[in-house]
Amino acid sequence: MLLIPCPHCGPRNQEEFAYERSVDSLVRLDDAPGVAMAALYARANLRGEDHEIWVHVQGCGQWLRLTRDRVTHAFRDVEAL
């Protein structure tokens, strides 16, 4: 049960948060179609540290960028988006 360090609320249970997507998969409104579909469907899916977008959906409702290890589940960095 992760304890996610929300920069707005402090550490909170993972139940309060929702994972959105990895940072590398952002599709911008003005991306060309090829670029957009590549971002949407081609994921690095790293076995190790990666950057992710989460939202504190049952808390402050704010979006976070988490840098976390997908094997150890350790957080290295969290920043408000």
């Binding site: 929702a18 959105e20 952002l26 911008r28 409104l29 977008i53 939202v55 959906v57 409702g61 704010q62 979006w63 988006l81």
Partner: peptide
Amino acid sequence: GRHLSYVTDIL
């Protein structure tokens, strides 16, 4: 609700 929030804050 989440989509609107994502579009607003992220996109």
